[in-house]
Amino acid sequence: MIKLSSIVIVASLALNASAQAQQKTYDASEKAIKLTHETILIDTHIDVPYRIHKNWVDVTKATDGGDFDYPRAVKGGLNAPFMSIYIPAHLEFEGKGKSYQLANQMIDSMESIALRAPDKFAIASSTADIEEQFKQGKLSIAMGMENGSPIEGDMKNLQHFFDRGIRYITLAHSQSNHISDSSYDIRRKWKGLSPFGKKLVTEMNNIGMLIDVSHISDDAFYQVIEQSKTPVVASHSSLRKYTPGFERNMNDDMLLALKENGGVIQINFGSSFVTAKAGTWGKQLKSSKESAKKDGAALSKDFDAAYRAKNPYPFASLEQVLDHIDHVVELIGIDYVGIGSDYDGVGDSLPRGLKDVSSYPNLVQGLMDRDYSDKDIKKILSGNILRVWQQAEEYAKKH
């Protein structure tokens, strides 16, 4: 029989261990910081454009809020972010010209950053641009479009956005659109890709536009894999292994298909993408709100804060993000994984140790601690996505 005093001691130790985990600080070594800064670091999904479209702030200088600004990017070694031209999946946007207009406005805002601070930023529309601007010590602004709604069923718009610097398109977002079904949308209108979407995949291949399979349904993913002549990218997705039932993430069969295609999965840092506990917490909050409404209660502005005070949010940890990277590497190899943080896109749900763009050296330190070589770390930071991008460029030259 276990004595009560022993149980108390064990429980106390467990609580202390939990508290220490919550309070753990991350201090990257000089070696990790040096490696991060000496390497091209491409994060394929940062939501600065929509952030400053809603509430303008000058990210060429230090800012009070958000996850990105120039000083923090420099500190973190981030030199080549893909800025997300995010278009909300609203029905009033789809097919009515508004998404096309909004996309152009946000591209304008990225160009204005480069014009306003040419000593710090430069627009990058090719792998050659990324490499040259890295040598110049400038932060490259590459761009991807999150939600293909602005294409509006017209291939001319695809070429228009390519000409404006867009280098990947996330085919759909949180609702199915005229291109593809969404992983979030229970209405599977197209059972994958629409007829136009299938034609679009071919045209994207032909002009060198990367196809982003994040957000789309499983059926759409496999149809893209079957049709695409170039490697695809999941610009900001994590693994379903750690979030069972969350279709927005990728399962092992999809990872194996991704390897056959030669593509890359860029790991999302958002806690609900990394750990099932965070996703469950969000569902419970939503359920609590619905129950309160049914009971006739008027939800106050402080409802979320009050709920969080009673039910602390289960932030993921840097170690759990590393687990996602480890699993990809163990299943399909080192050549198929990278970083797609979703900074400025997942609110305050970021993991401990990865709270903003100054945090990348912590990730590098974690990889070093798990015995990744410098060569493999560089593949994760940029080598893999550069390979995929270069293959798309080379295919387009021939077509």
Score class of each variant (00 low, 15 high):
T36E: 09
I46H: 08
S271H: 04
H215F: 00
K355E: 13
H327R: 09
R240L: 01
K34F: 07
V328F: 10
T202V: 09
I107K: 09
G192H: 05
F82H: 02
V328Q: 11
Q391G: 00
V364Q: 04
R370W: 03
V337H: 02
T44E: 01
E94P: 10
K3L: 03
D342V: 08
S29K: 14
T25G: 11
M1Q: 03
I7E: 10
K398I: 07
A257S: 11
Q175K: 11
L13D: 00
K355C: 01
H178M: 15
M254K: 14
M143Y: 02
A32G: 04
K286G: 10
V264A: 02
N157V: 04
R167W: 02
A292R: 03
A305R: 03
G347K: 06
I85C: 01
K54R: 06
K355V: 11
A297W: 00
G263V: 12
V201G: 13
A89G: 05
K286W: 04
G66K: 09
L200D: 13
A62D: 02
R308N: 12
Y222S: 09
I186T: 13
N206Y: 03
S373G: 06
S182E: 11
G165C: 05
H45A: 14
V321T: 13
L102R: 09
R116V: 00
D356C: 08
M1G: 13
S349K: 06
A28K: 03
D304H: 05
G296R: 12
K98V: 12
A172S: 12
F161L: 01
V264L: 00
Y242K: 10
D108V: 02
N362S: 14
M250R: 10
A276S: 07
S99H: 10
Q365V: 12
H53Y: 15
S183F: 05
G153D: 06
V233F: 02
Y395R: 15
M209P: 08
A14Y: 06
V388K: 02
R387Y: 14
R116C: 13
G282A: 05
H399M: 14
G95A: 13
H178V: 13
R308S: 07
V337T: 13
G148T: 05
Y313W: 07
E152S: 10
K241T: 12
L381N: 06
R116T: 12
V364S: 11
G296A: 11
K289H: 10
Q390V: 05
N362Q: 14
P312A: 01
G347D: 14
H324V: 09
E226L: 10
F273P: 11
S84C: 13
D326M: 09
G148P: 14
S180G: 01
L139D: 05
T39V: 05
D69G: 01
A28F: 07
L139E: 10
D58G: 09
V364L: 09
D69Y: 04
Y242F: 15
I87V: 15
S125I: 03
G97V: 06
F303E: 03
S183V: 03
F82C: 11
A11L: 15
K24Y: 09
H399C: 11
K120F: 03
L255V: 12
K289W: 15
V59F: 00
N384R: 02
N268Q: 05
H173P: 08
F82Y: 06
D47W: 02
Y372E: 01
I169G: 01
